[in-house]
Every structure is written in structure tokens, then in C-alpha cells.
């Protein structure tokens, strides 16, 4: 039986259609997030969405959860405060490649290092959409952007490698085309104690396509589909063969201790020491 899950979660007071361009993958990723939350049976009241600034970060306004649309790059920092102050809440961060890895890069690695129980979904389209198509920290070398008219000369981050190295418990990559896989990974990420990073390769059929002559939205979607390979397949390829590929799958799935849990233990120890603190 098909279900109109997303429609149970749209904000009743919000006007549609949403802000994203035709063929943008962001709406696909948002509905995958909502289905993942739904399938875990999480309550709307106790699931908080936090985002930064950028195209992707507009997502939380459309769905009926408590939500904070923060400042550029700081989504994980706001989310850390929310989760620390009330560890009972499920906290999902929606961020983009520029928001999460450039201006928010420091918060990204430190959230991973702390391994705080937050799930961050990186809407990764390799470009700054809202400001006019500048190159982002995940843009490939030689791709074009408004600020890379001669081709990008900066090497990109691999979001998953970065998150794994920084210590996140769960790290996975999917694409907007592989929406079912994406939903599964987000679900696993939310269920996982500790920090989860889900890198989602999503098309920008407006600006990325304009600067890189990547065709219409369907061309971009097909390109994502055709370039996608699994981790297992990638292991058999040389670096040159992997050059243009999108490697999807689970990059890390482990059980380092989670931050708010460790802090709760610390609080128990601290409370026991209150007696030492009695007034003289």
C-alpha cells in the first residue's frame, strides 16, 4: 500500500509549492528524511530539525517539527546546544556542502569528534545555489562555478572520509536518485547512537548545470544514476577509474561512546561529589 507520508508532516500553516527550483533534489531528500523519521515511529514533538543557511537549509520550514533555521554554517552548533540541553530529543540537522563543510567545517569535525547523538544530512550539490553558483568545498577540480570561471583549482573534501576520520559513529552516502537507499541510510543514522553523517549527492539543475553545461534536470539525475557505484565495486577500481564515480554505501558503522551519554555519567559522578562541596 502506498502512503502519503510526507503529507502527514507538511506544516498546515505553510504555503506551497516550496522555494526550490524545478528538478532540484532537495525536496526528494527532505521527503526521505520525513519517511525515515516516520518509519522509526519518532514523535513530531520530540524530533527537532536544525538547519543552517542555503538552499537545503530551507527544508525545515515545510515540515511540521519543532525547527530552527539558524545562521550560516552553525546548524551543528545550534543542534549541539539543543541535544545537550535535552538529550531526550531526536535531533536531525539539514545542511549543505557549503554550509556544513566550508563555513561550518569546524563545527562539522568537532561534532564528529564529540560523537554527539545527532544525525546530519548533507545536501551535497557541489555548489552555492542561493548566492549564485560559487564553487563549494565539494566541487570537483576543473568543474566550473561563478567564482571558478577557469575551472575549480581546489581539491574537494570527501565528506564521508572526513566524517569517518573525525570520529562519527555512522557515515554513509547515497544520492537523490537512490531515494529508497537514502531513506534506509537516514533511518539507520537516526537509530544510531552517536553522530551520523549522511552525504547525499543531489543535482542542482539550475546553477551547477548552467556553469557546467550538465543538461536539464533529467540529464543530471541520469548522470548521478549512471555514475553511482557501490563501495564493493569501487574497491576493484583504480583511482583513475573512480575519478568520476559516486561511491555509495555505508562507510562507517561503529559504536564509539556517545557524548550526551558520557555527560550523563559525568553528572552522576558530579552529583555524588556535592557533599564535598557542603558549606563550611
Amino acid at each position: 500500500m502506498m502512503q502519503d507520508i510526507i503529507h502527514q508532516y507538511l506544516r498546515p500553516s505553510k504555503k506551497f509549492p516550496h522555494v526550490w527550483c524545478p528538478g532540484c533534489g532537495d525536496g526528494i531528500v527532505l521527503s526521505a528524511i520525513v519517511r525515515a523519521i516516520h518509519s522509526l515511529g519518532k514523535s513530531k514533538n520530540e524530533t527537532v530539525l536544525v538547519s543552517g543557511i542555503g538552499c537545503s537549509s530551507r527544508a525545515p520550514v515545510y515540515v511540521d517539527f519543532p525547527a530552527l533555521h539558524g545562521t550560516h554554517g552553525r546548524a551543528l552548533a545550534f543542534a549541539t546546544g539543543i541535544k545537550m540541553a535535552n538529550p531526550e530529543l531526536t535531533v536531525v540537522v539539514i545542511t549543505g556542502d557549503g554550509d556544513g563543510l566550508a563555513i561550518g567545517g569546524n563545527h562539522f569535525i568537532h561534532a564528529c569528534r564529540r560523537n554527539i547523538d545527532i544525525t546530519a544530512v548533507v545536501f551535497n550539490n557541489s555548489i552555492y545555489g542561493m548566492t549564485g553558483g560559487q564553487y563549494s568545498p565539494t566541487m570537483k577540480v576543473n568543474d566550473y562555478g561563478a567564482t571558478a570561471p577557469y575551472g575549480n583549482i581546489e581539491r574537494p573534501f570527501d565528506v564521508c572520509d572526513l566524517a569517518s576520520a573525525a570520529g562519527a559513529n555512522f557515515v554513509a552516502r547515497a544520492t537523490a536518485y537512490h531515494a529508497i537507499m537514502l531513506e534506509k541510510f537516514i533511518k539507520m543514522g537516526i537509530a544510531k547512537k552517536g553522530l551520523s553523517i549522511i552525504d547525499v549527492i543531489t543535482p542542482c539543475p539550475t546553477l551547477y548545470s548552467f556553469y557546467n553545461k550538465a543538461g536539464k534536470n533529467i540529464d543530471m539525475m541520469e548522470s548521478i544514476r549512471d555514475r553511482t557505484i557501490t563501495i564493493q565495486k569501487a574497491e576493484q577500481l583504480s583511482d583513475a577509474e573512480k575519478e568520476d564515480k559516486i561511491v555509495v554505501g555505508i562507510f562507517a558503522n561503529r559504536d564509539f561512546p556517545e557524548y550526551t551519554g558520557i555527560y550523563s555519567d559525568l553528572m552522576e559522578r558530579a552529583k555524588r561529589s556535592v557533599k564535598d562541596e557542603e558549606l563550611l
Partner: peptide, 26 residues
């Protein structure tokens, strides 16, 4: 933590401010 509160040393000043705003929301 002795009195049921929580402390965190953030990675920078920007995030410290963001974290107290987030926490205040709860």
C-alpha cells in the same frame, strides 16, 4: 553537573553562542 545542569566547551565562540541559543530553545 553537580546541580543537574550541563556544560560544554565548544570548538569556538561562534558555536558557543549558537549552542546556548539552541539550548535556550528547550
Amino acid at each position: 553537573p553537580m546541580y543537574g545542569g550541563r556544560f560544554i566547551q565548544m570548538e569556538d565562540e561562534l558555536s558557543s553562542m549558537a549552542a546556548i541559543v539552541g539550548a535556550s530553545m528547550t
